[in-house]
Write a protein that binds this DNA or RNA. Structure first.
Lengths: 159, 159
DNA sequence: AGTTTTAATGAAAATGATTTTCATTTTCAT
DNA sequence: ATGAAAATGAAAATCATTTTCATTAAAACT
């Protein structure tokens, strides 16, 4: 007898049982959402994830994708961004993606989002300095610094 | 004979004719929206502005407030932010507010947004360094750097 | 001041992302 | 295998924002 959507142990994609270690009840839908997040380097919207998920398991609903992404977000497995276009986008948290900490370059013309992975040493020392400054000036406990650089990407500045 | 909503030249609040210099057709509604933006130090949502506007001139609609804010934004008079709570907030552009350039501290618990106006020299030199780095590494023409620090505000960390 | 032209406005409807509701199904400990 | 608790899907609800369109106001010309 088969239950649910299968467990990813067959011939196809392996997506089973990554979530148990994170205190999240591992259901087929959640594992699949997490699997999709692990297999992309892009920033995906909830609907992007849904489209990919339904390709693999058509029975899963958009609502569940929303709920799964929110759960992964609350548990620190994915990051959630709003780059100002009216929808959230998600990416795997740095510590699971192998990308390392990074920030973003956003083209104001075409909207493309690039990862900013160079220039990290400057960024690191800046963040540390700021943290101390912010603590003493505002009694604010800084946890995360988000840096976004808006401008023109290499393609758009040519035109 | 009176036209429109009045011109703010009477006994009450003076809000007339600040916009002509900015290439914006100065209508009563726009002047009033701009006036509200100039008189607050807060970050206001479109609805916040609408509530304040209607207190002064009840005839003005929310749609017009949205349109006016967008126009002010497109013309660089106000800034528009999305701090991730599903709505845009606006504040007067630095050069009209007397605040000077600044960034934001956002409390992850209560959602309060504070201006980060100290620690500016570090921030300035960091931004400049990054700009050069980003130019050479990504051929990306950096125009504006947005820095947000998430954490716990002084009130919330007590509890 | 009166007329014309063009742009702005308000109300209501439309949109679109996200959330909620609720009846059904799945998971997990027993 | 069984039952309690949690997760799911479909549809409806929400909520910020945008669009539509008939009306009104502003600016340019008499």
């Amino acid at each position: 007898m088969r239950h649910g959507y299968g467990n990813g142990q067959g011939r196809g994609r392996q997506w089973g049982r990554q979530l148990e270690n994170h205190g999240i009840r591992p259901t087929a839908a959640r594992e699949l959402v997490f699997s999709v997040m692990r297999e992309t380097r892009e920033h995906l919207s909830a609907d992007d994830v849904f489209q990919e998920v339904r390709r693999i398991e058509p029975g899963i609903g958009l609502t569940t994708v929303y709920r799964s992404l929110e759960l992964l977000y609350q548990n620190g497995l994915v990051k959630k961004y709003d780059f100002g276009d009216g929808r959230a986008v998600f990416e795997l948290n740095d510590k699971y993606s192998g990308k390392g900490p990074h920030h973003h370059l956003i083209c104001r013309k075409c909207g493309k989002i690039q990862d900013l992975t160079s220039c990290l040493s400057e960024e690191r020392s800046f963040t540390d300095t700021m943290k101390i400054c912010i603590e003493s000036e505002y009694q604010f406990a800084a946890e995360e610094t988000v840096i976004r650089v808006y401008g023109l990407c290499s393609d758009c500045r040519k035109e």
